[in-house]
Nucleic acid binder design. Structure first.
Lengths: 248, 248
DNA sequence: CGGACCATTGACCATAGTCAACCGCCGTGG
DNA sequence: CCACGGCGGTTGACTATGGTCAATGGTCCG
């Protein structure tokens, strides 16, 4: 799929984009960059001059603590903008890297400001995009702070499966989730060993399983209920790509 | 201070606002509402038609879990917009309440869209405002997920003291922080008893103390270092209201 | 084959959560 | 005025959860 199609597809999930908007998006000039697994794309402290859109693969934002420890903040799927806030915030307060191999396209801030002036709908759609990001961050605060063990993992898996579904990445009840257990721990604020044990517990419930960089959802209903997952915070307009339809 | 002054003061901390912008802000019509301590302003699930700006006091956003438990997400000071995302996200995914008595002013979405069209600088400033909110959420993920005990509290206190300072609320090394220990727990993902014990530990370091709904900072340097606090994520343009100047 | 990385396991330890009681303060109502 | 009740803060004792340490096995790759 062409980069502009990936982008348009995503924007349409939450915003009303018309054909003139689509045409404007297609006129954007961009650079494509391929990233190896784990490769850093932009670093805490940098001053970006362009914004990236994920085209293929999965990217992640993370904080690096004084100790050198890493805290992952969110994952990003094709169509997502993992560093748009750089448009208006001078310095990056976090880094962005690829989880697994990924393709990103970057569009200069200059061009974005121009397209915003021409097509206000697009500006609002991108703003909305950043607001949904914020909603996802809020949900992570709650998940990591008030859910324990298996429920925390289940909620995280639910969100990723749901978002992967909308990004068209789910096949046969499985979606890519290229994280090691160590990284799951850095995402959820748990130790490697805890992750491992709770994963086993989750496996035993027959709700979901994670292996070989993939998330297998055997019972969406059970997984979502274990994680108390309710997708309203993702603020999608369209509910068509129903998650339920593809997994019991 | 008049509501528009509170707003302008805040926007100027991160965005270049000129006199025409200020004039436009002053022309906004708004409704003032006084809230009692703990009163809910807007509820998870609501569809707001106006956005609120905190004028006096402190407000908070929170999630309500299925169990009825509450997870606070962030505090908001005069000049903050605790529910702007309602402009572009139909449903509230969290609630907003007053911590202690508060004064808010609400401005209809309609008027906001109009001022955005007239004064793009203001639009960008408000967008930036929401991006800074997101940065604060990210920091909370990290704080609640990867810092433990006293450090977690110290970081939270540092952020609140710093933000209160910029809102002009610090007097004699103390700022208002109208939360009970139970609420601190709901903010930081810790139990009441843990909060109590770590607060005592913090008190003993002579860095800071919390009592009578106030936060006393005895040694800013020590508090910030205990909490590994670095204010870059608050993305202020102006660094004039230095925090260090008023506390050793 | 050796090394690196990832998943898994057991044993032990540390931290935080739960339960329950008590204290002091404050506001209400007798 | 004082008794009472509620709330917020504090404490001790106990429990549970998760973290740390260390070792093992599998797999992939050079």
């Amino acid at each position: 799929m062409a980069p502009s199609d990936v982008l348009v597809r995503k924007l349409k999930y939450h915003s009303p984009i018309d054909s003139a908007d689509v045409a404007a998006v297609r006129r954007l000039r961009y650079e494509i960059r391929e990233l190896a697994a784990g490769e850093e794309f932009i670093k805490q402290g940098d001053r970006p001059k362009a914004a990236a859109i994920v085209i293929e693969g999965i990217m992640a934002r993370y904080h690096t603590l004084q100790s050198g420890a890493r805290q992952y903040l969110a994952l990003h799927y094709p169509g997502d903008w993992p560093d748009v806030q750089g448009l208006f915030l001078e310095h990056m307060d976090h880094s962005v890297c690829a989880m697994g191999r990924a393709l990103v396209c970057s569009v200069s801030h200059e061009q974005l400001m121009k397209i915003f002036a021409e097509r206000p709908t697009i500006e609002l759609a991108v703003w909305r995009e950043t607001l949904i990001d914020a909603a996802i961050f809020r949900e992570s605060i709650t998940n990591n702070s008030s859910r324990h063990g298996t429920a925390r993992i289940a909620h995280f898996f639910s969100e990723q499966f749901h978002r992967a579904k909308f990004a068209g990445l789910v096949e046969a009840n499985a979606c890519p989730l290229p994280l090691t257990q160590t990284q799951l721990g850095e995402m959820l604020g748990m130790s490697l060993v805890s992750i491992n044990r709770h994963l086993q517990a989750l496996r035993q419930t027959k709700a979901a399983d994670h292996r070989a960089s993939k998330l297998f959802v055997h019972s969406w209903r059970k997984l979502a209920s274990l994680g108390e997952f309710d997708p309203v915070y993702l603020h999608q307009l369209v509910r068509k790509a129903s998650v339920k339809s593809s997994a019991r």
